[in-house]
C-alpha cells in the first residue's frame, strides 16, 4: 500500500465530502491511501494577486510547513482551488528567499518552511505516477457508452505554471474518461469559468454561466459533466437548477472521483443532487445506491 499526505480543504471537508469518499474508494482499489494531515487550516480559497499582502500567504505557508515537518516531500489535494492556492503560494515563497524568511519569522509557532514541497493534484497522481494504463487495468465496471463532458473550470489548469495540464487544450480528464471506458465529449465551455465565488455576490451571473456551460455540454452530446472543484460543482448543480429556462438543460454533474470509484468497483458516494445523476447512470447499466 502506498500512502500520500493529503490536504482536504474546507469544501471537501464539508459539503463536498462525496468528492473525498470517491477518491478514497478509488485509491483503495489502486493500492493507495490518502493520509489526512492531522491539523490543517483553510488555504484562503483565492490566491492573492496583489504584491503587498504577504499576510495572505501565511495560511498556505502554515500548511506547507506542517506537511514538510511531517517528513513529506509532497502534499495531495483534490479540490482544484486548494490545489491552485497552495501551489501558487508555494511557488511564490520558494522563488524568493527573503520573502520566505519573512513569512517564517512571522510563523514562529511552526517549524520553518524550507521551500520546495510539491503540491500534487489527484489527477497528476493518477496520470503521472499510478498511470492511466494501470487505472484501466483495474476497471471492473467500464463506463461503456456514458457520454461525459469534462469541465475543467479555471484553477486546475491556470495559470500555466501552476496547472495540471495545458490551459487551452487539456486532456487529463478526457484521457481518464477514456481509461474508464466512457466517451469524453468535447465542449466549447470546458475551460471557461463557472463564476466561482461570484455565486455569492452575483448569483444571477453564476446561473447564466451554468446555463451556458450546460448548453455547450448538451450541444456536444453529453449526458453528464464531471468537475474537480466543489465550487464548480455547486454552480453546475444548484445554480443551474435554479436558472430560469434551464428545464431542458438539466445535465447532471458529479466529481471525477465519483466516476473513478464507480468504474473501479467502489461506491461513488452519490449524495443528494439538485439535478440527479442516477437516471443517466442507470440508463447505461450503472445503477448505484444513494447513501443517506
Amino acid at each position: 500500500m502506498n500512502t500520500i499526505l493529503y490536504y482536504p480543504g474546507c469544501g471537501v471537508a464539508d459539503q463536498a465530502r462525496s468528492m473525498e469518499k470517491g477518491a478514497r474508494e478509488a485509491l483503495t482499489a489502486l493500492d493507495w491511501e490518502m493520509q489526512e494531515m492531522s491539523r490543517w487550516n483553510c488555504c484562503g480559497t483565492v490566491y492573492s494577486l496583489a504584491t503587498d499582502d504577504l499576510m495572505r500567504h501565511v495560511g498556505p505557508a502554515r500548511v506547507l510547513a506542517r506537511a514538510q515537518d511531517a517528513g513529506q516531500e509532497r502534499l495531495l489535494t483534490l479540490c482544484s482551488m486548494c490545489y491552485s492556492t497552495l501551489k501558487r503560494s508555494e511557488q511564490f515563497l520558494t522563488a524568493d528567499r527573503e520573502r520566505l524568511d519573512r513569512v517564517n519569522a512571522f510563523l514562529d509557532d511552526e517549524p520553518d518552511y524550507r521551500g520546495g514541497l510539491r503540491v500534487v493534484h489527484l489527477l497528476e497522481l493518477l496520470r503521472d505516477e499510478i498511470g492511466y494504463e494501470a487505472v484501466q487495468e483495474r476497471v471492473v465496471r467500464p463506463l461503456q457508452g456514458l457520454k461525459v463532458a469534462p469541465y475543467y473550470g479555471c484553477t486546475l489548469t491556470r495559470p500555466r505554471a501552476a496547472g495540471v495540464d495545458d490551459p487551452e487544450r487539456p486532456t487529463v480528464l478526457e484521457d481518464l474518461l477514456t481509461a474508464l471506458g466512457a466517451e469524453a465529449v468535447a465542449t466549447a465551455e470546458r475551460v471557461e469559468c463557472c463564476g466561482a465565488y461570484l455565486t455569492a455576490s452575483s448569483p444571477d451571473v453564476a446561473r447564466r454561466r451554468a446555463v451556458d456551460i450546460a448548453r455547450a455540454a448538451i450541444a456536444g452530446g453529453a449526458e453528464l459533466m464531471i468537475t474537480s472543484c466543489p465550487l464548480c460543482q455547486y454552480n453546475l448543480d444548484t445554480r443551474l437548477a435554479e436558472a430560469r429556462g434551464s428545464s431542458d438543460l438539466r445535465v447532471p454533474s458529479v466529481y471525477f472521483t465519483q466516476l473513478l470509484a464507480l468504474a473501479l468497483g467502489g461506491d461513488p458516494a452519490v449524495e443528494e443532487h439538485e439535478i440527479d445523476p442516477l437516471p443517466v447512470l442507470a440508463a447505461r447499466g450503472l445503477s448505484v445506491e444513494v447513501k443517506a
Binding site: 480543504g9 474546507c10 469544501g11 464539508d14 459539503q15 463536498a16 483553510c42 484562503g44 480559497t45 483565492v46 492573492s48 495572505r56 479540490c79 482551488m81 466561482a196 465565488y197 461570484l198 455565486t199 455569492a200 455576490s201 452575483s202 448569483p203 466543489p230 465550487l231 455547486y234
Partner: peptide, 24 residues
C-alpha cells in the same frame, strides 16, 4: 463597498464561495 452579501443567502452557500468573496 461594491456590494453586500445577503445574510439569508449566505446560509446556503458553500463556504469556499464566502471565503472567496470575503477575501476579494
Amino acid at each position: 463597498t461594491p456590494f453586500a452579501v445577503d445574510e439569508a443567502a449566505s446560509r446556503r452557500l458553500p463556504q469556499i464561495a464566502l471565503v472567496g468573496i470575503t477575501r476579494k
